[in-house]
Write a protein that binds this DNA or RNA. Structure first.
Length: 424
RNA sequence: GUGGGAGUAGCUCAACUGGCAGAGCACCAGGUUGUGGCCCUGGCGGUCGCGGGUUCAAGUCCCGUCUCUCACCCCA
């Protein structure tokens, strides 16, 4: 069958059958975020295009080629959000959240949009969860962010995850390092790949991140940024590492980790898994002390991460880490004949009001069909009601697992069921 | 945006060098006129992704296109 309408390229329906996985992850996320005292924030799915252009940075791939941008009827340019940090900072500034509380700790679980070629672990609409702490430069805030991300993955039971850590400096020291990098690479500039030759001018730090064998070799001997960090960045980075060690969160310093968004300062980190192939980053984040100012507000420091739910689900599936979900019914009520169906319907309503999960047949199907349905729905019990039962005033209740059957007087049926099958 | 692989029933897949489009599972019904799962029997279900071309004849060959998939770029 060829349907005229299908999900747009790179998008997916999340069908009822897979929803338990999403609910499970969302439940654990909210639970752990709440314990760390983060509160949820929701912002519009689209924003002023300039918010992203300026916030994320004009030279980034996200802005240059991945944004879903459209004009509204007034000719104004909007963009479906490709990430959530810029909108959160925008909301923080717009609502003067810094005035009401010194520190804002926020989390989100929300869809994002990027117009890229779909691939394993990459979609055009995907979901991210993330946290942000705004209003402090304290290294402990960085560590809290990293901790909450790692703790979540640990609680899910994930093994084989690696935390990669670096500092990308600040406005004081990064320009110095950029120049130094250019000086050191200039002699080999012609040997770098085409992308890297461009990066040499636009964003030399990204050359370190190139995955090409040749480029990596050429940059192997380059001085790491550590040697050029200003005193403040150096001590900040040192403290982050010390605190992580203190709370026993293993990390791997990675001088090549620079991240693709321009707004990062100081701490940058990624959590990767070796189960995912080339899209191995499962969580990425860092500090962004210049972002608020960049989008036109006061300078407000912040730190946060974003992580992808679809990728996480892939990893969880591979590792078999989702708990067995056992969708079931407490009771399937079978009605045969008009009078019985009416009784069954009224009884089902009464039981549902008392917190039992009940189902009935809508289509006057045969007893066999209804039994089959009860079995398929994994019903704990089935009650079979026809003319005889109404006449005799006695309802047979069948325990599906064992097949044993007992009769319950019709006038006390609901009460007995609520008592014996129901939960408090 | 660039390159490789793939699209046949709801799902997983067959169909030789072009010659009537199939199986398993699932679904529905019957065997059992009021008792699920197991078993048996039958049934429903396809514009072979879409469009064009070659041919007496195309699921099969050619071109285009869409989608999926993998990789590059980059990212969650």
């Amino acid at each position: 069958m060829t349907l005229q309408f299908q999900t747009p390229r790179g998008t997916k329906d999340i069908l009822p059958g897979e929803m338990p996985k999403w609910h499970y992850l969302e439940h654990v996320l909210r639970d752990i975020f709440t314990k760390y005292n983060f509160r949820e924030i929701r912002t519009p799915v689209f924003e002023d295009t300039d918010l992203f252009a300026r916030g994320i940075g004009g030279t980034t791939d996200i802005v240059q080629k991945e944004m879903y941008t459209f004009l509204d009827k007034g000719g104004k340019s909007y963009t479906l959000r490709p990430e959530m940090t810029a909108p959160v900072v925008r909301a923080y500034l717009q609502h003067h959240l810094g005035q009401t509380k010194a520190l804002q700790k926020m989390y989100y679980i929300a869809p994002m949009f990027r117009q890229e070629r779909p691939q394993a672990g990459r979609f055009r609409q995907f979901h991210q969860y993330g946290v942000e702490i705004m209003g402090t430069q304290a290294p402990l805030a960085d560590v809290e962010i990293i901790t909450v991300g790692v703790e979540f993955l640990r609680r899910l039971g994930l093994k084989d995850i690696h935390l990669k850590l670096n500092s990308v400096g600040c406005l004081v020291c990064r320009p110095v390092y950029k120049l130094e990098l250019q000086n050191q690479l200039r002699p080999v500039l012609e040997q770098l790949c085409g992308d890297c030759r461009n990066r040499f001018h636009t964003n030399p730090l990204r050359i370190l991140d190139c995955k090409k064998e040749n480029c990596r070799a050429l940059t192997e001997e380059v001085d790491p940024i550590d040697n050029y960090l200003c005193d403040e960045c150096k001590s900040h980075f040192g403290e982050v590492k010390a605190l992580l060690t203190e709370v026993k969160i293993p990390f791997e310093p990675d001088k090549r980790l620079v991240r693709g968004l321009d707004y990062y300062t100081k701490t940058a980190f990624e959590i990767i898994t070796d189960q995912l192939g080339s899209q191995d980053a499962i969580c990425g984040g860092g500090r962004y002390d210049m972002l608020a100012k960049e989008i036109g507000g006061d300078a407000v420091p912040g730190v946060g991460f974003a992580a992808g739910l679809e990728r996480l689900i892939t990893v969880m599936d591979k590792a078999g880490l989702f708990p067995e979900t056992d969708p079931h019914l407490d009771l399937y009520l079978i009605g045969l004949g008009d009078a019985a169906r009416s009784w069954v319907y009224r009884t089902a309503m009464q039981l549902r009001r008392n917190n039992l999960i009940c189902e009935i047949d809508y289509q006057q199907r045969s007893l066999k069909a209804q039994m089959r349905e009860a079995n398929r729905l994994n019903a704990g019990f089935t009650a079979i009601v026809g003319e005889n039962e109404l006449k005799n005033g006695s309802i047979p209740l069948k325990k599906m697992e064992t097949g044993e059957q007992s009769d319950i007087p019709i006038e006390v049926f609901a009460g007995e069921i609520i008592k014996s099958v129901g939960r408090s």
